[in-house]
Design a protein around this nucleic acid. Structure first.
Lengths: 193, 193
DNA sequence: GTCTATAGAAGGATAGAC
DNA sequence: GTCTATCCTTCTATAGAC
């Protein structure tokens, strides 16, 4: 079949991590949902839960980055792209009962002071997002020294808005944070002129 | 003594939640660190871990709000106050090995789609922070309809910056988010003139 | 190699001694 | 009422049957 057991485990784990976090997701829960025998986890991931977590973090981070790129690439200009990104996130939240937000933020907070290998994986993802965002903003006309800052503002705004929107079950924080990010981006673009 | 067993349990739990999250913190771990017998948890919190979690969330939220008010109240003007708030957060992160950030964000993400009573507690805290911030910005001269938005920008920026800074072990996200929040606040204040 | 059964530790919760 | 001992479940991980 097109999807291997290994991929099914990775996909299922990513989904469960997003909803229940790292410590809140059990290996038995994963294999049950992925319709795989328990032993297949240790067959495909000899390092156990930690190895599985690492791969899920890096993989989800990469997929989310591709989603960013797709949305921004499909927009006529960078300002519209950023606006579409936040509006799409708000809509997706609403449609998924406020579950479908950042795939790694919950895990990132859980492991930041308790699991160094996993913390490093989340840091690697965030750093990758920042660099990708900075490159895109720079090529859109944001001055070099400002491009990284704008990328950080975008990502921190979105992450923080996810925290509040998921807790409050309201898209308001995502919408407001999106507007603020657009304003910050416009200001940075003005500096270039 | 000045501090009761109940308070010691609440303080200890708040600290452990911040570091390990809700599911990552065990009741046995709590009583061990609080130097209390195991039974005292169910004596003081008959509702078990969930009741304890609820009280910790609301209490930590209130204490953090007081901290906001203290910092903003001690600053000569609102812009300086917001700057001090982010700078203080960055310094505290650095000093505490990037553990001392938002006391409830980790729990908020963990429970958002898995524990409705606890989700409501986190939502109550965030809504309280937004309203307190909006009131303060309004009295500082931000037009009424903008005051709530600025408060949301402040809180989402800080929360998102905490996620990145803790994961990356770098204060850069908090500092950049702080600058952006100051810029947004200044723009809102200009609208009033 | 795929899968089941189970080990050994830790989880939350409770009963009852004192 | 304070505290201890224990219950039952669930956790990660492993051993070994097929």
């Amino acid at each position: 079949m097109a999807v291997t057991t290994r991929d099914r485990i990775l996909d299922t784990t990513a989904e469960l991590f997003r909803r229940y976090g790292y410590t809140g997701t059990g290996l038995k829960q994963i294999v049950a949902e992925a319709q795989a025998p328990f032993g297949s986890i240790y067959h495909h991931f000899p390092g156990g839960k930690e190895q599985l977590g690492q791969e899920v973090i890096l993989r989800s981070g990469g997929m989310y980055q591709e989603l960013f790129e797709t949305i921004l690439g499909a927009s006529p200009d960078i300002v519209t792209g950023v606006r579409n990104l936040f509006e799409g996130a708000a809509e997706l939240l609403r449609q998924t009962d406020y579950a479908d937000a950042c795939p790694i933020a919950t895990v990132a907070l859980e492991v930041a002071n308790s699991n160094e290998p996993l913390r490093m994986a989340t840091a690697e993802v965030f750093e990758g997002w920042i660099e990708a965002g900075a490159a895109r903003f720079a090529s859109a006309g944001v001055p070099g020294e400002k491009a990284r800052d704008v990328a950080i503002v975008l990502i921190t705004s979105l992450e923080g808005a996810f925290v509040l929107s998921r807790a409050m079950r309201d898209t308001e924080p995502v919408r407001v944070a999106g507007e603020a990010t657009v304003v910050a981006l416009r200001a940075a673009l003005r500096d270039a002129a």
